[in-house]
Amino acid sequence: MSHSASGVLATEGFHAPGPIDFFLPDFTGKSWNQDGYQVLLTKSSLLLVLGAVVAYLFLAMTSRRGKVVPTKGQYLGEQAYSFVRNGVAQDIIGAKDFKRYVPLLVSLFFFIVVNNLFSIVPLLQFAPFSRVSFAYGLAVLVWIVYNTVGIMDKGLLGYLKHSTIPAGVPGWILPLLIPLEFLSNIIIRPITMSLRLFANMFAGHLLLILFSTGGAYLLLHATGSVVLKPAGVFAFALGVAIGFLEVVVALLQAYVFTLLTAQYISGALASEH
């Protein structure tokens, strides 16, 4: 009894990571809202710019001096580009008018991939999209694009009718259906889109912090039981495994974001049946 009680006591020095760990200080060392202080430029906003630069450089380097027999870099770039162009844009939007949207989809995909992969790059180790405001920004961009595309294609009233009245439903259910469809297609879409990207990066980064700081605490400071130090080693091993999982999540979330963008554009363009 006393043994387990001391084990519980020993964990009181450990501070579990939480959302507060994502409010990084800026380069003067002060944190957000410390005595009403407004941060100017943080690591996350710099990483966002770096992400755009790296994504541009990757595409520019792999597509410059294209050869008939491609080098390894050119092959990688072409494979990734044609994955988005053919696998996402062409398949979802359709062969007729997907070409206009390929630049948007390709740049979205590479921008998000590079930014997400920052979460496991040593020394950087922070995914900008684990701050929700950046994800909101991207979702607002997509929201503007698919609504504009729909309005330009069908006119304002036509687009509203197209996106709120599904084809082939009986008239008596329309008073219920129109507000629901409007809510789901116009209001909720950008919110779920940004929250999906944000929450995946957030949860992954939180897990990494938890396993690394918890593992360090168990190894170095925890006393009271012989199983705590092996548990610390186990926590570190699990943290490494989570790091690999993060790579998969980073690629998957970029793919999902691009896929949903294409899906919404294709939904706004679809003709009435």
């Binding site: 929250l195 999906r196 957030f202 998957l252 896929l259």
Partner: peptide, 27 residues
């Protein structure tokens, strides 16, 4: 497989949205 993959990922993303809304509200 190539036809089913985007559909599966799309369905996964839509089902996952519920869990995502949950984690946002939990905080």
């Amino acid at each position: 497989q190539s036809r089913l993959q985007p559909i599966a990922i799309l369905g996964f993303a839509l089902a996952e949205a519920l869990a995502i809304i949950g984690i946002a509200l939990a905080f």
